[in-house]
Write a protein that binds this DNA or RNA. Structure first.
Lengths: 119, 119
DNA sequence: CTGTATCCTTAGGGATACTG
DNA sequence: CAGTATCCCTAAGGATACAG
């Protein structure tokens, strides 16, 4: 349950799941507002919880690729439920309208689409 | 989004939604492990976020009843998704098997049942 | 660049006292 | 009992230096 009790963790999962982010530098983008030490800590925690996997990037030498494990991908329903709720009530939610449209029109299709992108 | 970033908040919502808890004393049950000052703070925050309502209990004098607002009830899909994920991966989740059974067999029915209980 | 460790301050929160 | 406020300390985390 500790996964949901932390906003940074949720942000990272969201970025992995919906924004195609994979690299340290993308998560530590200033717009996210997460300090590098915290990012480091949360990534390590997520790895140790088995929610993400950390693998060497074959193309770039000293770089790692972070990806959701199966356990992590199984969080998709949770994340989508949050997205939906936030879109309804959170004024400043920046979810693209096209995404919401799809989510409501055919959630199953959207899910497989996202999982495909994560594979 | 701040709602999901706090474990105590989530616990309170869960208690309201699934355990039929309504009163201060029930939330502050030692088993929950939440300090009274934190409880007070989180309840106030939830009220100010419009997720719960705080009303006088007509039967008892100085007592309040806390209930989910519509906005709060709309968190049901999120909470159920969390329950399901936790049941799958979190070893020490104490969700009753009967509940999970229902959730998988006929989620829609379970939802209306819960909403009925909250009404 | 990618990622971790250190420093230091502030806020979260436990224990508990207090008010009605 | 229901609920809030105070005290105090630990830990989360921002800024930044550091290592590869």
């Amino acid at each position: 349950m500790g996964v949901f009790g932390d906003q940074w963790t949720l942000l990272i999962i969201r970025d992995l799941m919906f924004k195609g982010k994979k690299h340290y530098g993308e998560f530590s983008d200033p717009a996210e507002g997460i300090a590098t030490n915290i990012l480091s800590d949360r990534l390590a925690r997520l790895v140790s919880d088995g929610i993400i996997k950390k693998d060497r990037d074959p193309s770039h030498g000293a770089r790692f690729v972070y990806r959701l494990s199966e356990k992590g991908k199984d969080l998709l329903p949770v994340m989508l439920a949050i997205v939906e709720w936030s879109a309804k009530y959170d004024a400043n939610t920046e979810t693209p309208p096209a995404f919401l449209e799809k989510l409501r029109r055919d959630p199953a299709a959207l899910k497989t689409e996202i999982l495909q992108a994560l594979a």
